[in-house]
Design a protein around this nucleic acid. Structure first.
Lengths: 208, 208
DNA sequence: GGGGATGAGTTGGCAGTGTCAACTTGTCGC
DNA sequence: GCGACAAGTTGACACTGCCAACTCATCCCC
């Protein structure tokens, strides 16, 4: 049986294969030519569907974001009618689980400046996250909610990356069991400090 | 004037040139061949000093860590006799400054699993950080100190990366001025939640 | 139903990369 | 002076992303 001239849905097949390759060997090791060969098409065929390598990886990252919010919202909803803080904790835990279970994909999603076309998926994911955080702070002023959202995101994002990059070495933990560390970090992420929202004369971060 | 056969200190020259290239164009764009050409040596000369590209980049990252702790400790010491929390805040601010002022170098330092030989510099940097955090928590039990250290690191690390990757978009900040956000994140990082250090049956993070 | 138009896939090639093996050149110690 | 050894060179291989020119299949329209 010889393959037909037209593949059928090469674009989707490429994204799927690239996702698999990313998860298996990291996004640095994906080669368009290797993917094409694995799918039985010629080495230039991918360029009919993606402008370049980066565009294909952006599509993979978008799929990753979709999967991330799916798990996040599922955790949020199945947590049910427990206090809002507990729901948020459950959702945050699902975030960290995603990061540690699919490290290479997570890296791809958050590494490097996001490509122009790839911002939509990331923005949508942020929207879901922000909504759940806001739900735990009813009546708080907008600026305080936004600050809390980004602070919490920072803690979770930083911890996720430190974990999956193998940056947390045993000597840093000492007698502290990993599970306890996880809980402590969740405590830190969820704790709401008395945020001093007075504008102070400090250098601000670059906001793109 | 023709160059002598032996370069003199090609190794140091390579690291310096690579550092410059990283800061200018990002570590993905450094090419051993281009560096060699720029230094007036043949394309294979770098392999006399570095086993491969990764080893050279590891040396650059190590230099970055040295520079990072230099600035960090300077900020810590010049903060002087103010309360411990303020000193730590000043030091933390220097960390974020480093990240936003030298984004490409920071990325290189923390991205991807650290190479076997490149752990020493990162470990030394962590030691400085941990020492300053511990100084603000006199008398606290070891596990609590370690948990606080990593939680604080997570927040700072995450915020730094979100900033320098351009992940913080204007719509996420709304009316919140960047300087206020910075302060809010520092508040969150420095706040000490009532850490529940009881071991709970939750999946722990992978610790390498 | 014949016949373009057009999207999808192919072949071939270019420039550039990391890496290795074999060779040459300089330097230093005996 | 000479031989060992480190440092640098040449040449090659396999691989990559990307582009231009070409071919094939399909679909719409008269």
């Amino acid at each position: 049986m010889d393959r037909p001239y037209h593949h059928g849905d090469l674009r989707a097949a490429l994204v799927a294969a690239a996702l698999q390759a990313v998860e298996r060997h990291g996004h640095a090791a994906v080669s368009l030519r290797a993917l094409a060969q694995a799918l039985g098409v010629s080495h230039a065929a991918p360029y009919r569907h993606f402008a370049n390598r980066e565009a294909l990886l952006a599509a993979v990252a978008a799929a990753g974001f979709a999967s991330l919010v799916e798990g996040y919202l599922a955790a949020w909803h199945t947590a049910g009618a427990v206090p809002a803080a507990s729901r948020l904790r459950a959702a945050a835990r699902s975030l960290l689980t995603f990061a540690t279970e699919r490290p290479a994909l997570f890296r791809l999603m958050f590494q490097g400046a996001p490509p122009p076309g790839g911002r939509a998926a990331a923005d949508a994911a942020y929207a879901s996250f922000a909504a759940t955080v806001a739900a735990t702070l009813p009546g708080a002023p907008e600026a305080a909610v936004k600050a809390r959202t980004i602070a919490m995101w920072s803690t979770l994002h930083g911890f996720a990356l430190l974990c999956l990059e193998g940056r947390l070495r045993p000597f840093m933990l000492g007698p502290l069991p990993p599970a306890a560390l996880l809980e402590a970090v969740l405590d830190a992420a969820l704790a709401s400090p008395a945020t001093s929202l007075a504008t102070s004369p400090a250098p601000g971060p670059a906001v793109a």
